[in-house]
Simulated assay, not measured.
Amino acid sequence: MRQSRWTPSIVPSIGDQNVYLVLDCFERSGCAWREADAGKTDLETVIRDLMSGQYNDPQRVIAFNTFEHWADDVSEGVARSGDAPTQPTKISHHPSRTSWCDTPAETNSTI
């Protein structure tokens, strides 16, 4: 009997598509990348959800495309988007968080 060497892929074939995810913060739970239906991760849906208040405290919008092998923080572009002329989007750097590059390097004076 002939044995096939083909095995099915566990990676879904969604093709060349940009995906947008929102980092949302919650008072007591911290921050999390919000769960999203695969068909609702396009830019227009994310902007519509942001404008309609679907997020608690959005911090960042990340776009990626696994087919093209890229990812980018698109928060500023989404916040300035002309698709949302009636209200400003609520995306900003959370004041209680500092980046590793904002923190001065520690020195060891005991050496």
Rank of each mutant, 00 (worst) to 15 (best):
Y55V: 06
R60C: 02
D72W: 14
Y55I: 05
L43V: 10
E68K: 15
T66H: 12
N56V: 14
T45Y: 01
D49L: 07
Y55G: 02
N65Y: 06
E76H: 13
G77S: 09
I62A: 09
T41G: 07
L43N: 06
L43D: 00
V74Q: 04
H69F: 12
D49F: 00
R60G: 00
F67K: 11
A71W: 13
P58N: 06
V78K: 01
A71K: 10
D73W: 05
A63P: 01
T66C: 07
N56C: 15
H69R: 14
F64D: 05
D72E: 15
G77C: 06
I62G: 03
R48V: 08
L50C: 04
D42R: 09
V61W: 00
N65V: 08
W70G: 07
L50P: 01
T41W: 00
D57K: 09
D57V: 07
M51A: 15
T41K: 14
D72L: 14
D49K: 10
T45H: 04
V78D: 01
A71D: 10
N56T: 15
F67V: 10
D57T: 12
L50Y: 01
L50N: 01
E76F: 12
D72T: 13
I47Q: 04
L50R: 02
V78I: 13
E76T: 14
N56S: 13
D73P: 04
V74C: 07
S52N: 12
L50D: 00
D57W: 09
M51H: 02
A63W: 03
